[in-house]
Design a protein around this nucleic acid. Structure first.
Ligand SMILES: [Mn+2]
Ligand SMILES: [Mn+2]
Ligand SMILES: [Zn+2]
Ligand SMILES: [Zn+2]
Lengths: 151, 151
DNA sequence: ATGCTTATTGCAACGTGTTGCGATAGACTT
DNA sequence: AAGTCTATCGCAACACGTTGCAATAAGCAT
């Protein structure tokens, strides 16, 4: 009897991808995928570790982080870094997007692909680099905070 | 007899700024500023801790990091984050610039103010944010790696 | 079902910072 | 020169990840 999981489709894709690489499907990995899927939006590595350990207290940080790395390799998860450098993960079900952090008010804003397009074009134009939108995380001042400052 | 230091001007600016804030000038701070000035270009926090401890083995990481924070507050140092999130510092003698890391070949490229201008404009146009160039650190593929990949 | 092979796991140690606290020592006053 | 005030320091503990290694357990073959 298969365990009931919230995301059948994802699980099956993963199992297939792993088999193809000679890698294995384990309970830990099922739990981690489930937790990540349930952590709608973003979650830091530490938060994910904590949630996984609620389902399976024997799970350790090393396993969780190794699995997150694996999921990124397989293109099923992405991370970026907060202004303090800490990692933040999300499943790659949502569309690709970047992040903006205001150092004035702390607000975090998402940058969707459409809004990012001219920015990425400007980056390529100026440098030849093609930047990864998923990993892009800018710090600065939002419009409101800039207005306050002028005040 | 004043200790011989490599950067008189900087030290004097610092002493004045500290006095104005009711803060103190210490041997530790002299050493840290000297080390930072000698670490031409960029250095990670850990590297700076190590170099400071060569001059003064009694110095501890907490003091070094607290001093780096202080120098940033005073506008004398800046940091950004590598692709792994680790902090990297440099004195704010050099002109403001951003950083690009190629995930293909590992190359790191600096982005000077002139090259960055159109990018920052695009960011403000798309989002209203005014991004901090100093803290900007992008991951992506450089032109060469992109060409290879197509090959 | 049983055994084999080796990917995965947990553990322990390490690397990089951060924080609270009591001891030390700058800087200013007398 | 001595005393006062309090900023700074070192220490110990913690938070967040990463890595090497020996034990475990998937997945496959018999
Ligand atoms: Mn930062
Ligand atoms: Mn990263
Ligand atoms: Zn703001
Ligand atoms: Zn490259």
């Amino acid at each position: 009897m298969a365990k009931v999981t919230a995301n059948q489709g994802l699980t099956e894709r993963l199992q297939a991808a792993l088999k193809e690489r000679g890698q294995r499907w384990t309970d830990q990995r099922q739990i981690i995928v489930d937790v990540l899927a349930a952590s709608d939006g973003h979650a830091t590595g530490a938060e994910l570790v904590e949630r996984v350990r609620q389902d399976d207290p024997s799970a350790t940080p090393s396993t969780v982080y190794r699995t997150l790395d694996l999921l990124e390799e397989l293109g099923l998860a992405r991370h970026h870094h907060g202004p303090d450098g800490r990692e933040t993960y999300h499943l790659e079900e949502t569309t690709e997007h970047g992040h903006l952090h205001c150092r004035g008010c702390g607000a975090e804003q998402e940058l969707d692909a459409a809004a990012a397009a001219p920015i990425l074009r400007a980056i390529t134009g100026a440098t030849g680099f093609s930047a990864d939108l998923d990993h892009l995380s800018l710090q600065g001042l939002c419009a409101a905070c800039r207005a306050d400052q002028k005040g």
